[in-house]
Structures are given as C-alpha cells and as structure tokens.
Design a protein around this nucleic acid. Sequence first.
DNA 1: AGCCTCGCCTAAACCGGTTTAGTCCTGAGA
DNA 2: TCTCAGGACTAAACCGGTTTAGGCGAGGCT
Lengths: 359, 359
Amino acid sequence: MQRRLQRARIADVAREAGVSKTAVSFAFNTPDRLAASTASHIRAVADELGYRPHPVARMLTQRRTMTIGVLTPQSLAVVFANPSFARFGEGIAEVAEAAGYELHFISPRSGSLAAAVARATVDGVIALGLTGDHPELGQIRASGLPLVLVDGDHDAGGASVQVDDAGGARAAAKHVLDLGHREVLVVAIERPEASLGGQQGAVITNRLAGYRAAFEARGLDLGPESIVSARASIADGKRAFREAWASGRRPTAVLAMSDAIAMGVVEAARELGRRVPADLSVVGFDDVDIAEIADPPLTTVHQPIREKGREAARLLLEGLAGEPRRGEHARQVRLATRLVVRSSTARVATARATPPRRV
Amino acid sequence: MQRRLQRARIADVAREAGVSKTAVSFAFNTPDRLAASTASHIRAVADELGYRPHPVARMLTQRRTMTIGVLTPQSLAVVFANPSFARFGEGIAEVAEAAGYELHFISPRSGSLAAAVARATVDGVIALGLTGDHPELGQIRASGLPLVLVDGDHDAGGASVQVDDAGGARAAAKHVLDLGHREVLVVAIERPEASLGGQQGAVITNRLAGYRAAFEARGLDLGPESIVSARASIADGKRAFREAWASGRRPTAVLAMSDAIAMGVVEAARELGRRVPADLSVVGFDDVDIAEIADPPLTTVHQPIREKGREAARLLLEGLAGEPRRGEHARQVRLATRLVVRSSTARVATARATPPRRV
DNA sequence: AGCCTCGCCTAAACCGGTTTAGTCCTGAGA
DNA sequence: TCTCAGGACTAAACCGGTTTAGGCGAGGCT
C-alpha cells in the first residue's frame, strides 16, 4: 500500500514498468508505436497503480481543452431558473457534443465576468445577452479567444446570432390591432433583473420598436402611458397587471415581452374578474413549452431558441476550426420569429363594458 | 504589430518589461512582493501585449480547477430537454457559485463516460442516476476524484443524495386507494431511454415498491397486468395510455412515475372521451413547475429537486475541503417527498360506467 | 561483408505558468 | 567601520504530461 502519493504520475508508471515516460505516453495515445506486448504491459501496470493521465497537464501540451464556455451575464442559479435557457443549452449541447466538445458554464465570479473568463479553461466562448460594448467583451477579444455573441449587438463586428425580435413584436401587435383592439397595454421586461434566455437591452429595445412599428403603420401611437415593466416571471407579470389596473388602466389587450409575464397577466386578469380571451386578449413572447399547455393556450411569438443555441455552437466551432482567416467577415446569423395564434386572443368585444378611454 | 505570436506568454512580458518571469508572476498574484512602481510597470506592459496568464498552465501548478463536474448518463441534449434537470442544476449552481466554483457538464463522449471523465478537468464530480455498480464509478473512485452519487445506489458506500421515492409512491397509491379506486394502472418509466432528472434503475424500482406497499397494506395486489411503461415525455405517456385502453384496460385511476407521463395520460384520456378527474384520476411524480399550471392542476408527488442539487453540491464541497479523513463515513443524505393533492384526482364514480373488471 | 531500412524505444526539450531558495543591495544599529 | 536585517528581485526547479530527434539492433538486399 504505497498510498503516500495522492495520485500516480506518469513517472511512477514508467519506473514500475521499467520503461521511459515516452513509452507510457505512447501506450495511452498511440499504442501502435509500441510493440503490442509492451503496450499491454504498460497498461496493466498503469491500471494497477490507478494511473490516469492528468487532464490538465495533457491540455497544456495539446493546447486545446475540447470545451466550450457559455458565458452568462447572471449567476447560473438565475439562468437555470429560466426555462427558455434550457432550450438554448439543449441546442448548444446538441452540436457541441456531436463535435466532441464539452460545456463549461461561466458566470460572473464574485461579480466580475472578466475574472471568470480569465480563469476559464475553454477553447472558445458563447456569450449570452451581452451588448457589444460590454467591457468584458473587449478583454475576451484582446485575449484572442474565439467568441460568438448571442442576443447582443449585431453591429459589434464579431460572429453573432440574433433573432428577429422586432419582426416578431410587430406581428404580435399587428395581430391584436387586426382583432380590433385599441386599448393595448405593453408589459416590457425590466432591465436590471433581466431574465436570461437573452433578454437584455438590445432585445427589449428591438421588441419595443416592433410593437411601435405596427402601431405607426396604422397611424396609431404607443405612448409611454401604455407601457409598464415587469421582471420575466409569472409572479411579477401578475403584479404589473394588477398595478396597471389599480392605476385605472383598462386595456382590452396586453402585449407581454415574455410568456411568463403573459401568464402572470392572465392570472391577474382572472382574479380581477376578466375572462381571457373574452374580456382581455394576451400575447406572450418566446413560445416556451408551457405556452401550449397553459390555460388558455397562449398566443405568442415563437422564437427558435434551440436553433439559436445550435447556430451559436456551429459558428463557434467554425471559428475554432479555421485559422483566424484575415479579412474574412465573421458570420452573423439572424433567425426568424413567427406569431403562433392560440386561444388567449380574440376579437375585441363589440359591446364595450369598459369606458371609452382611460388607458 | 508583432502578431506572429498567437498569444503573449509570460516570458514575452518579462522580456519586454525587463524583468524576470517570477516578477511578472508576482505582479499578477502577489503584487505586494514587488515595489509598487515595478508592479504597475509590469501590468502596463502586460496590458499592452494583451497578456493573460494561461489558465491551464496556472491550473497545473495550483492543482485545482475550481470547477465541479456534473456527470450525466445521457447526452446533454437529452438532459437539458428535461425540465426537472434545470431545477437540479439550479440547486447545484447556487451553492457551487457561492463557493467560487464553476460548472462543467460531462456527458458520455463518443459513448464512453469513462473516457469523458478521464479528460474532464474538474476537482470533483456529481454523478446523476448512476447505479453504484456502474463500471465508470469504479474508475472515478480509483482515480481519487471526490464523488457524490445522486439518485443512485445508497449502498454504494460513498457520499450520496437520495430522495424518498418509495415513500412518495406509497403516499400516491394510498391517496387513490383512499378515494375508492380499485382499477389502477401504473405507468412506469421505461429504462433504456430513461429520462434524466435522475430516473434510473434504482428510482424506478423504489417507486414501484412504494406503489406496491400501499396496495399490500390493503391486502390488494398490483399485478404485472396493471403496469405499463413509457418514456418520460408527454407524447409517450399519451401513447402508453392509448395502448392500454386499446388492449381493453379500463382503469379509474392512473399512477404515473413522472409528471410528463401523467400529462400525456390526461391528454389521451380526453381524446378517448374521459373527463379528468371525473372519469379518471391521475397522479404524477416530481411536481415540476408546469404541474401546477396544467389543466387540471396535477396531483403529484413533490420531490425537492433543487434541494437535491444543493445538497449534492454541499456534500461535494465538504469532500473537496477536507483531507480524505480516514475512517470517517461519507455522508449520505436522504430527502423527503410529499404528496401534493391538486385537481386531477377525485373520488371514484359510484355509478360505474365501466364494466366491473377488465383491467 | 557492408549498407540501409525499419521497428522499438528513449533522452531531452517543451507547454506556460508558480514556487523555492537564494542573491544583491541598502540602511540601521553597534 | 562592520554586521545584520530585510526589501526587491531572480535563477532554477517543478507541475505532469507530449513531442521531437534520434539511438540501437536486427534483418533484407547487393
């Protein structure tokens, strides 16, 4: 029992087997460079000693970790709490695994994303919901780590994956306008606690611009008094609608920037005695799994979250594979959104129970 | 533009700054060992060169990666698709992050978990749903990597976190028996494609044993003809119930081993013209988020998935911190489950529309 | 016999840092 | 004036592997 050593090293195996370190290395990596008998002997000794090549040491010489980092602007606990992130992760995992890569999640360590990135042993990074001018991004770029931006700024110049948030929002707004609604309340995502799945500055701005475009196309206006904010959770969506109601707003339709908010609005409306969609139409955003199962099934803007993950991983792998080919533009992918009409929206009630204009 | 070098090394900075490698290292790690002016000069040069200490090299000398590995028996794409896994990950992340650790997900690389583990640069591993006799576990133990088993075999001897599956299942079965049901169909989780969240051999066995115990406590029997299997998804739960129905079974209650299956059963029952819970009571397992939102809200067995993650992480951190204190038993944690009665179960209809006994 | 090739294996350099064990110099105390 | 402490910095060893460049002996060919 020579259990003094915490762990067997390659030198131990070499000594024990009476060969050189090189031979041991060969036995594990390129056994064909050794006589079959030698190789099996070495492996036997290694097994006996419980030897396993030290992964970190191996990385150091091979200069690749076969790991891709997923950079999240918030703590992982928050990120994992968001169902749409699971879809995104699923997409990344799908293509990363196929290429033999593993996933390493990087979140702000003691507040600093930069510090976390500096310590991360990854070959490349997929950054979620970071605007292009975010200070950490500069550092990552400077260090030469391949990077793909998701739901950030497209102008940033690097590889990026984006979703047509504006188009989706426009379709959602057009839908309720087509149904005759004029008293419309927008529940935006609140910035600071911005839930993941990539809801960050750019995303919110784009969606709002989309809503607005639909209104303007009809010569209507979407004033600040028609916009409230909530964090992307059921509970906070509920709160937001209740407060809007309490302050006298009587919308016939709600455009919510996330499904969770939308479901909160539905709950709040019911508790206030409004039926959905008879008295109030509600449109969500994202089209998470539960949107279809919810009661009533939610009309919402579908965004291909899994595909977003896949695409990001593909882009990163491209960057990893190729030389940093000069002059060639980094690819920027933009994915489409589409409105999915279910049962939470209906034509505005012709006989209005609500007074004309108090919104 | 000396862009020949892919990346600045410590030696480059040292040369450029006219100091030794040691000084550069000090400037980054223990600046107080240097004159303030020297330290800032070195950092300036480093910045200019875009130098960032190579994380892998640093790991090698420090012998810790500050990363914990999460070992999943299936591909990550499959794992992430399971909503309950997100809860589990959330729990792990919560305590791991608080302790400054990052998360690295390890899935079977080209089929071999062992190979994946061998390459993983982690300080310890949380293994999900692996039975104690799984061959990879032996390797991990042999290599001296701290390990926590979740939803595996408790007899295995190492640190482990378990959930009282049997107790929860017993409570579920007792509930439907108390409601007067006697024609009960169990929809178990199918082994091969066993969805994650830790549904593996041990879990299925324990749950089944729990159902059975409740029946036996009443002198009733739960024969193999009352048990069918499905993968843990809505679609497959639907299929399973339809097939059971087609083969002539007419249960008044269904005990499903997962919420997803339960929801599939509900859908199938509706399509067959049965109302839930009037004609058919359904009990799920896990109590995922959507169980509460579903229509009807699902009666199910709650298991503290997030707490399971937290506990696993805590156990691992303990193992990481302490010396491998001899003789001391590894801790084994067991968490409670509890039945949550919602609206998918009801007293059995007194006037039976279904023929007496065809199950 | 002499030369080459080839199979099998090894010594030493290297990956990019950290750490140990000093060296050198300056200023205070005796 | 000499000694000694301690501040500032460095050379070399080390972490644990992989890779390069080659050594050595046996057999084939001429």
